[in-house]
Design a protein around this nucleic acid. Structure first.
Length: 598
RNA sequence: GGUCCCAUAGCUCAGCUGGAUAGAGCAUCUCCCUUCUAAGGAGAGGGUCUCAGGUUCGAAUCCUGAUGGGAUCACCA
């Protein structure tokens, strides 16, 4: 049983027996003892001083005496001011390690069972008019990692992608291609499909701006110039044609979308993310209208003179929100209401519907949840917006229309080149085949990028410094991979020498570093649970880093294969193996692979 | 202007539901490869946790206000 739970129960009993006080166990906190002090677990007794009517020191001593007498896992205790430090017996920790080893790769995970609840995670959700960039990378990595973590917490997870494949922005790319493209294709240009489309999106913007300037120089206001520019008018006409199902337009749209999807799939596959369910906005954009009209009938929403339909959110401290245009067409919010309803209809009583979307849409999701609950859907509160901050560059902001973005494909390629250079300089992979080397370089590059982004708390705006991200020392993905490779090397040698890890260790004590490591291992499940509850993959990343640091210290101080006492040798080997298992497991939750050699 | 988010070492970031002397990495300066992978380890310097109040035995953490930065308040998505 978990030591914290044992101690919590024991403390409740102790307070009852010694002071005749009844304390709710949920109010009790057991914390780690700080490194400067002796002990493993600490109970802060200040809250019980009033009950005891004694000094903090006396209270701590009395509780300590009671606990030591009644809890076999407690070996000794010491008191510093109001802090009761408990030393847990090696026997407990060693047994704990044996148990975790026996669980193998499943250690720390809660299995998905028939009565597991369902959670949908929508992420990525790209536009089909340009390639993926750095911001999308953060989105994809967060979404995928979150799905993995929730799954490790025992939820049935559906990874969903809603592709924004319609609207004026798509028409811009289409129009530019039609006018200036000379029937260029991914094959003829050698460009990835999404990059080809992105090229024409940028081109549209460039030409459009030129037209605006011309109009302004002819005396137009900027507002008017933007709207009156011939290119803009043509794009709007194209959208109308598309909506009316014009065969030629739809056919071009289909062709160009196929190019983009092919490009996206390459990027997704290289990033290692995947989806269980695809939604296309061209198929969902008409949803929600009925629901809105229903709400209008019930008097929850209201209609303006021009025929548009609105929600009054002033009671909630917000503005009025448009839901149907005067011509009866839907807006973004309308569709989102429609798709949410559809999803709960299809998947029943989900525990959560999570949207991984940037923080610029905080307001949108706040409004979405309010309107849904106004419309009477009890599950409205189950919508969770996993809001993440922008990724900034040292040079300034990214603007896709101006082409000042860090392109996802370029970035991954650059990372790989760096990984290749560094690895070749170190020269440790000589024994591998060319193919194996390539795979390792890619693995290292991906780890560097993913870890750099995922170690930061999602909500925060983060700084992406390309130079630093490529640094493979310190708190980085490659550092963690390196430790895994080191352990694998030791395990290989142990195997060659015929040293095996027994189910039961024959040691009764251990060194300081071994104790710290064993405690870190014991914490893994708690971290998975925390990361799931807080929807924060960063907890997994930071825990793994701490674990790896603890291992490196142990590795430096304690010899494994050269240890003469075979009981100690086996114990150390077991410890190392479990650390390697957790590294691989934790990194997998973040979508990162770890090599056996590097 | 309203609303929401952020502010911790020179830089990039941790710090769980309030607990002991606030931690890492990078950068700077030392030291450690005849020992299992030195992409490693040990050490030094570097902090009024933006500011001001408040709650508490105790605040980087909770509350209020201010300042600075970001987002948003579209008949775009």
């Amino acid at each position: 049983m978990n030591i914290d739970i044992i101690l919590t129960h024991a403390l409740v009993t102790a307070l009852h027996e010694v002071y005749e006080a009844d304390i709710d166990s949920s109010s009790i906190q057991i914390q780690e003892t700080r490194k400067e002090f002796e002990g493993d677990k600490t109970i802060v007794v200040f809250p019980y001083v009033k009950i005891a009517r004694k000094s903090p020191e006396q209270t701590a001593t009395e509780i300590g005496n009671y606990l030591q007498e009644h809890v076999s896992e407690i070996e000794s205790f010491n008191v510093v001011k109001g802090f009761l430090n408990l030393s847990i017996s090696p026997a407990y920790w060693i047994q704990n390690l044996q148990q975790s080893l026996s669980k193998g790769e499943q250690y720390g995970f809660t299995a998905v069972s028939s009565d597991s609840q369902t959670i949908m995670v929508e992420y990525s959700s790209p536009n089909t008019n340009k390639p993926l960039h750095l911001g999308h990378i953060r989105n994809n990595l967060l979404g995928y990692a979150l799905a993995q973590i929730l799954s490790a917490n025992g939820y049935r997870v559906i990874k969903a992608n809603l592709i924004n494949d319609r609207g004026i922005h798509i028409c811009k790319s289409m129009l530019a291609w039609k006018l200036f493209g000379n029937n260029e294709t991914p094959e003829s240009s050698g460009l990835k499909g999404d990059h080809l489309i992105g090229k024409y999106y940028v081109l549209f913007d460039k030409k459009h701006k030129k037209q605006i300037q011309e109009l302004i120089s002819q005396g137009s206001s900027e507002e008017h110039a933007k709207n009156d520019a011939p290119l803009m008018q043509a794009a709007r006409e194209m959208l109308v044609k598309w909506e009316s199902g014009d065969a030629e337009t739809v056919s071009l749209w289909k062709t160009m979308n196929e190019w983009v999807y092919k490009g996206f799939n390459e990027t997704y596959s290289r990033m290692g993310v995947s989806f269980d369910k695809m939604y296309y906005e061209s198929q969902t954009y008409l949803l929600g209208k009925k629901i809105i009209l229903d709400g209008l009938d019930k008097g929850i929403l209201y209609k303006k003179e021009d025929g548009s339909v609105w929600a009054d959110l002033t009671k909630e401290g917000l503005d009025h929100k448009l839901l149907l245009r005067p011509d009866g067409t839907s807006v973004y919010m309308t569709q989102d209401i429609g798709t949410a309803v559809e999803r709960f209809r299809e998947f029943g009583n989900m525990k959560e519907l999570i949207y991984v979307v940037g923080n610029e849409q905080n307001y949108h999701f706040q409004v979405l949840s309010i309107i849904l609950s106004k419309l009477g859907y009890e599950w409205a509160e189950k919508i969770y917006h996993m809001s993440y901050g922008m990724v900034e560059l040292p040079a300034g902001k990214m603007k896709s229309r101006e082409g000042t973005v860090v392109d996802a494909d370029d970035l991954m390629e650059e990372m790989k080149e760096t990984a290749t250079t560094i690895s070749n300089d170190l020269g440790k992979l000589e024994s591998l085949t060319v193919n194996e080397k390539e795979q390792t370089f890619e693995m290292i590059a991906q780890a560097a990028l993913k870890y750099f982004i995922l170690k930061v708390e999602p909500r925060k705006t983060m700084m992406f410094n390309p130079k630093e991200s490529i640094d493979f020392n310190g708190n980085t993905g490659p550092f963690i991979q390196y430790t895994h490779a080191r352990i694998c090397s030791v395990l290989r040698k142990a195997d060659e020498q015929g040293i095996t890890i027994p189910a039961t260790f024959l040691v009764s004590t251990y060194s300081e570093k071994e104790r710290e490591l064993i405690k870190m291992i014991a914490k893994y499940q708690e971290i998975i649970s925390l990361a799931g509850k807080e929807h924060a993959p960063s907890h997994i990343a930071n825990y793994t880093y701490d674990l790896v640091k603890a291992f490196n210290q142990f590795y430096h101080e304690c010899s494994i294969l050269n240890e003469e006492d075979s009981a100690i040798q086996q114990f150390r080997l077991g410890l190392s193996k479990q650390v390697a298992t957790i590294i691989a497991s934790a990194m997998k939750l973040l979508g990162i692979n770890v090599p056996e050699r590097m």
